[in-house]
Design a binder for these strands. Structure first.
Lengths: 196, 196
DNA sequence: CAATCAGTTGCACGGAGTGCAGAAATGTGC
DNA sequence: GCACATTTCTGCACTCCGTGCAACTGATTG
C-alpha cells in the first residue's frame, strides 16, 4: 500500500532524508564508517534512532542511498539520447550525469573514496551499482540491432559498461583524482573492445 | 602474528571448517539464509557459537567462503595456461575449473541459486567475485602485449571477463540450468566484443 | 472543541559479532 | 603414567543493528 502523500509532506520528507544523509556522511567521513554508530548519526541530526530507521532501511543505506538516485539519473539521461545512437555511446554520455551531481570535484573524490575505502561498504557499493543494470539494460536492449535484439546481450553490454566505470573510478581513487575519470573509462573500454 | 601450525592441527582445522560450511549450506538451503541463525548452524554442527566464529568471520562467510577458494583455483589454472596464449582464452579456460568443483550439475545449480536468490547474500557474492580481480589481473597483465602492458588495462579486461561470467550465471539460474553456462558466457562476450 | 491521522519516540526484543577468562583437550618431557 | 605447557573450546557479558508495538505529539478538518 503506497499511500499518495500530500505534496507538503512529501517535500519535508525528502528534506529530512537528505539532511540525515548529509550528517551521516560528515560523521562517516570524519570518524570512519564502522566507528560511527547509528545513534550518533541520529543524535547529530536531532532525531531519534527509531525515526532514522523510518527514513533509511539500514545503516548502509545511509551511506549508499545516493547511488540509487544516481542510477535513476543515468537511466533518465540515457533515455534522452537519440534513438539511433550506438548503445555504447549513449551509455558513456549517460554516465556523464555523474559529473553534474556532486558540486565540486574534491567533494566527489571524498565521496567515492569513502565508498571504495571501507571494507564494510564495498560490497553494498558494488551491488548497488550492479542494480543499475536492471534500470539500464531494458533501455540498452531497444538500441540493439534487430539481429541481436536480445535481453541477455543487452545485459552483458550494460554490465560491462558499468564494470568499466567501476574500474575507472577505482583507479581514479588510487590516483587521488589526478586524472579525468572519463579518460580512464575510455582507456578501460578500449582495452576491452579494441575495435571501438 | 601468523603462527605456523602443526600439520595435524592444520588438517583438523580444515576438516572442521568444511564440516561447518556444509552444515550451514544445508540449513540455508532448507530454511533460507535469513531464517537460519548462527546458533542453529553451530548447534547442528555440534559446536559452540563462539567456536563457529573462530572458523568464520561472519555469517556471510559461512555461505561465501567457497567463492574465495574458487578464485584461487581459477588463478592457479590460469597460471598453468601456455604463456603466449591470449588472455581472454586463458581466462575462459581458467573459469572452467568451476565445472570440476561441485560434483553434480544439480548441486552446482543449487549453490548458485542460493547465492543469487538471497537479497542479503547478493552483495557479498558480487564483492567476493570482484575480489577475483585482485588475484587474476596481475596474471593477465603479463599476457598483454608490451604495447599495452599496463596494470590498468589488465584490470579492465579481468573485470569484464568476471562480469560476463556473472551475467552468464545469472541467466543460467534464471533458466534453471537448462543451458550450458559457458555457452552463455560466450554469447555475453561476443555481445561485448563482436570482433572476437 | 473534538476527532482524526501521520509522523515521532521510547521500549523491549532478537540476532550478529567481540573481548575475556576459565575449562577442556592436546601435546611434550620425564 | 604423570606433571606441565599450549592450544582450542566454551560461556558470559557486552555493543550495535534492525524491528514490532504502543503511546505520544502536533497539525488538519469538521
Amino acid at each position: 500500500m503506497v499511500q499518495k502523500l500530500s505534496p507538503i509532506r512529501e517535500q519535508t520528507r525528502t528534506v529530512v532524508r537528505s539532511l540525515l544523509a548529509r550528517t551521516a556522511f560528515e560523521l562517516f567521513s570524519a570518524k570512519g564508517y564502522d566507528a560511527t554508530t547509528v545513534d550518533e548519526v541520529a543524535a547529530a541530526a536531532g532525531v531519534s534512532r527509531r525515526t532514522l530507521f523510518n527514513y533509511f532501511r539500514t545503516k548502509e543505506d545511509l551511506a549508499l542511498s545516493g547511488l540509487s538516485e544516481q542510477g535513476e539519473m543515468i537511466a533518465a539521461r540515457f533515455a534522452q539520447r537519440p534513438a539511433r545512437e550506438d548503445a555504447w555511446t549513449s551509455l558513456r554520455a549517460a554516465f556523464h550525469v555523474l559529473e553534474e551531481i556532486e558540486s565540486s570535484p574534491d567533494r566527489r573524490l571524498e565521496v567515492v573514496t569513502l565508498l571504495f575505502g571501507n571494507e564494510s561498504l564495498r560490497a553494498g557499493h558494488a551491488e548497488k551499482q550492479a542494480r543499475w543494470q536492471d534500470l539500464l539494460s531494458p533501455l540498452v536492449e531497444q538500441r540493439l540491432k534487430a539481429s541481436d535484439h536480445r535481453a541477455f546481450e543487452a545485459r552483458a553490454i550494460t554490465a560491462t559498461a558499468i564494470t568499466c566505470l567501476q574500474v575507472a573510478f577505482h583507479e581514479w581513487v588510487q590516483l587521488r583524482g589526478r586524472v579525468d575519470v572519463f579518460d580512464l573509462y575510455d582507456r578501460a573500454l578500449r582495452a576491452v573492445r579494441p575495435s571501438a
